[in-house]
């Protein structure tokens, strides 16, 4: 199976309530809360596209846009 490539981690700052769940459980520590208690992707280059932040976000504020790798279509 091809590896997914990250296009963008889209964060809806209006919806994010800064609970920190995504920050804590990101396996590669891509995310951090900023001074306004909103999540930002500080190290997108480390993202492995597992999308756990998107799925676990209680505010539905994260969308991880990916591209399928070469072998998939």
């Amino acid at each position: 199976m091809a590896k997914k490539k990250l296009l963008e981690i889209m964060i809806n700052r209006d919806w994010c309530k800064g609970c920190g769940i995504c920050v804590q459980f990101c396996p590669t520590k891509v995310l951090e809360l900023d001074g306004r208690e909103k999540v930002v992707a500080v190290r997108p280059e480390d993202c492995i596209c597992c999308k756990m932040c998107e799925l676990r976000c209680p505010d539905l504020a994260i969308e991880v846009l990916t591209q399928e790798g070469d072998k998939d279509e």
């Binding site: 309530k17 609970c19 920190g20 769940i21 976000c57 209680p58 505010d59």
Partner: peptide, 11 residues
Amino acid sequence: CPGCGHGTILN
């Protein structure tokens, strides 16, 4: 509320 599990269930 921030961190409420219900949001995740909706998700």
